[in-house]
């Protein structure tokens, strides 16, 4: 197709959008809403994933050994821990070291250390790291059943909750995206259908004078794609404003909560949204052209 024909197509697309401005705006709004939901759902998912990985890295199982275990026995347990599925690393922390770190934390001259004197009430401890968060609960259960283990502590409950939250968000995200995306495609298809109907005389004349099928289709395609793109642009703007404000608020108030601020991640989200907007538009047009534009 010639460049000047592209110009004609663009002019015709804009002309019919203007003629159908309310319908066009409604379609743009639907695209904007669906892509905004999509964008936030995606941000929520990647942020929880990010949160999980950050927490996973800090997550460990503390294994408290019984008092009667001798130092030799304790050291030998390392290989037994290492054999538990999902355990990546087992670090032995003898009670002296535990006391030392306690002293460091509270300061050598503190009341606590003075009261304790020479006695050390702390047990020997193993710190286990697992491959990932999912392995924490079963590994902990396995360790608890082993002889010589007095108690096991980990962020019980928290890990499970975090995992199910991520999974749930994934599911919610996918369903929401599908539902609203479908609505957007449907509305664009309706808009294009109305446009095809409004321009049926023009189409008939174009056919009669011998316009090629693609010359006839292009303006409708462009119209759908412009609607999709403008909708996506609104969504990107909305997400940009709200998310940057959100990040600012979170870092100011609950700064221990890790949030993604990596601009390359965010930019790729914006690019994806714009691409999806154009694709939704093209898809909507294609459906209508296929059904209503018999050429």
């Amino acid at each position: 197709m010639r460049l000047s024909s592209m110009g004609y197509a663009l002019r015709d697309a804009l002309r019919s959008m203007w003629r159908n401005k309310f319908m066009s705006m409604a379609s743009m709004a639907t695209v904007a809403i669906s892509l905004t939901i999509l964008g936030f759902a995606w941000l929520l998912v990647v942020n929880t994933q990010y949160l999980t990985t950050v927490m996973e890295a800090e997550l460990e199982i503390n294994v408290y050994l019984k008092d009667e275990i001798t130092r030799d026995q304790a050291v030998q347990m390392k290989s037994a821990f290492a054999q538990i599925p999902g355990v990546a690393e087992a670090v032995f922390v003898p009670k002296e070291e535990g006391l030392k770190s306690l002293e460091e934390r509270f300061g050598g001259e503190s009341e606590l250390v003075r009261v304790l004197g020479d006695s050390n009430p702390l047990p020997d401890v193993y710190r286990l790291k697992t491959v990932d968060a999912e392995h924490v609960p079963p590994a902990a259960a396995a360790v608890l059943g082993m002889p010589g283990v007095d108690d096991v502590r980990y962020g019980k409950g928290l890990v499970e909750k975090l995992l199910s939250l991520t999974q749930w968000l994934h599911m919610f995200g996918v369903i929401a995206i599908l539902a609203v995306g479908l609505a957007a495609v449907f509305l664009i298809a309706t808009t294009i259908r109305i446009t095809v109907f409004a321009r049926r005389r023009e189409v008939a004349i174009m056919k009669l004078v011998g316009a090629t099928d693609w010359y006839i289709r292009w303006p409708f395609f462009l119209e759908g794609m412009i609607i999709g793109l403008v909708g996506a642009l609104c969504a990107v703007l909305c997400i940009f404003v709200v998310y940057s404000q959100l990040v600012k608020n979170i870092t100011m108030t609950v700064n221990f909560l890790p949030v993604i601020t990596d601009s390359s991640v965010i930019t790729s989200l914006y690019q994806t949204l714009l691409l999806m907007g154009a694709s939704l538009g093209a898809l909507g047009s294609a459906i209508s052209l296929h059904r209503f534009l018999k050429i």
């Binding site: 197709m1 010639r2 000047s4 024909s5 110009g7 004609y8 023009e202 004349i205 174009m206 004078v209 011998g210 316009a211 090629t212 010359y215």
Partner: peptide, 10 residues
């Protein structure tokens, strides 16, 4: 319009 439909230059 009839000329544009045949993709004639402007």
């Amino acid at each position: 319009f009839a000329m544009e439909a045949l993709e004639m230059p402007r």
